[in-house]
Simulated scan of single mutants.
Amino acid sequence: MSEEVLVAVRDGVLEVTINRPEARNAMTKSAAEAIAAAMDRLDAESDLRCAILTGAGGTFCSGMDLKGFLQGELPVDSRGGFGGLTTWTPKKPVIAAVDGFALAGGMELAFACDLIVAHAEAKFGIPEIKRGLVAAGGGAVQLPRLLPRPLAMELALTGDPIGARRALELGLVNRITEGPAIEGARELAGAIAANGPLAVVATKGIVRDSWLWPVEEINQHQNPYIAHIFTSEDAKEGARAFAEKRKPVWKGR
């Protein structure tokens, strides 16, 4: 694992930290590949329930490392795209914990996660257009899916950032914190990790993929995600724990 990315496990949650504070956590190819490797670990280890992606030194990610770009390097993973996560997602949930700036590819990386917790003073933006570039890591595509078109156009065409409170109002952010964003992210991760792991994976898959499904084919497309859930040991344990008024003990099967 690259020293540009730190990985730790805390209470069943994989915490992945972009560790280039001297460069505002600008993304390099090695960091992107390390994040992708961490996401593979998230899916591979049954004791891990979800992940938090954050940045060291009070900044989430300021986008592509321009020095590397000028030398011909693109900060992408062959499967996961920018930051190892913008064109692929693990089966388990990923929470972005955003302090400081999430700009350009950094904003796209945050949006590639499933949920976002941000410090109240954090800022989000895709300023690529100010440098003659295009937000090609998903920003120009995702914004009009998340916002009314005029608002998406304004953010994309001006390149100006918005604050976390405005992002919360627009539904781009789940929660904001007055302290470090990772504190709120850990709280949210804990709520997710307490649930049935098979059900969490299936539910993320449905929420992520179902916007492509024709209404008349919803059940047909959903069945492969849930067919094994209702006959699982976890489903029986969840019902039993409810009846016995205790916390369930999940087995992931």
Rank of each mutant, 00 (worst) to 15 (best):
K204D: 01
G205T: 04
G205C: 09
I206D: 00
V207E: 00
R208S: 15
R208K: 04
R208Y: 06
D209P: 14
D209E: 15
D209W: 01
D209R: 14
S210W: 01
S210G: 04
S210I: 01
W211P: 08
L212K: 09
L212C: 01
L212N: 04
L212R: 06
L212V: 03
W213Y: 08
W213C: 07
W213T: 02
P214A: 07
P214D: 07
P214T: 04
V215I: 06
E216W: 10
E217S: 15
I218V: 11
I218Q: 02
I218H: 03
N219C: 09
N219F: 03
N219L: 14
N219I: 01
Q220K: 13
Q220V: 13
Q220G: 07
Q220T: 12
H221M: 13
H221I: 03
H221R: 08
Q222A: 15
Q222S: 06
Q222V: 10
N223A: 13
P224A: 14
P224C: 15
P224E: 12
P224H: 13
P224N: 14
P224S: 14
Y225F: 15
Y225M: 01
Y225V: 00
I226P: 06
I226Y: 07
A227N: 10
A227P: 03
H228P: 03
H228R: 09
I229Y: 01
I229V: 14
I229A: 00
F230E: 01
F230H: 02
F230K: 00
T231P: 13
S232I: 12
S232M: 08
S232L: 07
E233Y: 09
E233H: 09
E233A: 10
E233C: 10
D234Y: 06
A235P: 02
A235V: 00
K236S: 06
K236Q: 06
K236F: 08
K236I: 10
E237Y: 04
E237T: 13
E237I: 11
G238Y: 03
G238D: 07
A239S: 13
R240K: 12
R240G: 09
A241S: 08
A241F: 09
A241R: 07
A241W: 07
A241H: 09
F242I: 05
F242S: 02
F242P: 04
F242K: 02
F242M: 13
A243M: 11
